[in-house]
């Protein structure tokens, strides 16, 4: 059950990346950034799998995941929002988070081998704020990346807590800790279904009408 959910999540992720990559030409920058985001996530997952096979601890990849996700999605939202204040918040947040994390890892390199609570919290929380910015802007504007935004927000809300307790679950027995990670795998699937739905709504039909 557990491995099935995880693998199904991976397949959906790969499918999403391929679908978004197919419609890549001629799209706006936000779309391209999002496609790149999917690509990076796939790389992280493949890296984690390789480490697992070679029996190397792969927890350090979580930092690549959180920081990479934060950096790329920050750029994504920066391209989406048009309000001056919101753009400023995103830019400041970007610089602030990256600089504090560099300082933190400079001072305590051993943090790299555990879940970093501050990192998880700050990157997820800022992305939640940006996602809410985007929802706010969409109240009276065209709905662009509506379902992607929904998926990101839902996933961040739930997964943040799961990652925050990650250091604790790592010390649980394997059976118990699997429960939380199965939950996470389920969330990944839901998230990817949102991406898939967005692709179907916004890009699949347009391609058909264009070809007619």
């Amino acid at each position: 059950m557990h491995s099935f959910l995880i693998n199904f999540g991976y397949i959906l992720l790969l499918l999403n990346f391929i679908l978004f990559a197919i419609k890549f030409p001629g799209k706006n920058i936000a779309y391209k950034i999002f496609t790149f985001y999917l690509f990076v996530i796939i790389c992280v997952q493949i890296g984690a799998k390789i480490c697992l096979l070679k029996r190397i601890p792969n927890l350090f990849l979580s930092h690549v995941y959180f920081i990479g996700q934060f950096a790329i999605l920050s750029l994504f939202y920066l391209k989406l929002v048009r309000d001056q204040f919101q753009q400023k918040v995103i830019k400041i947040g970007f610089v602030l988070v990256l600089s504090t994390l560099i300082i933190q890892y400079g001072l305590k390199p051993e943090m790299f081998l555990k879940f970093n609570l501050y990192e998880i919290f700050i990157t997820s929380f800022l992305l939640i704020i940006y996602s809410v910015f985007h929802f706010y802007n969409m109240l009276d504007d065209v709905k662009e990346f509506y379902f992607i935004n929904m998926g990101i927000l839902l996933y961040l809300f739930a997964s943040t807590i799961l990652f925050l307790i990650g250091n604790l679950t790592a010390k649980f027995s394997k059976d118990l800790s699997m429960i939380t990670w199965t939950l996470n795998a389920f969330l990944v699937i839901v998230n990817n279904l949102f991406y898939l739905y967005e692709w179907k709504i916004s890009y699949y039909k347009k391609a058909i009408t264009n070809s007619n």
Binding site: L117, Y118, F121, L164
Partner: peptide, 11 residues
């Protein structure tokens, strides 16, 4: 545990 609880609560 305390750190986790605090981070969870604050978040």
């Amino acid at each position: 545990i305390v750190a986790t609880a605090i981070f969870s609560c604050v978040s």
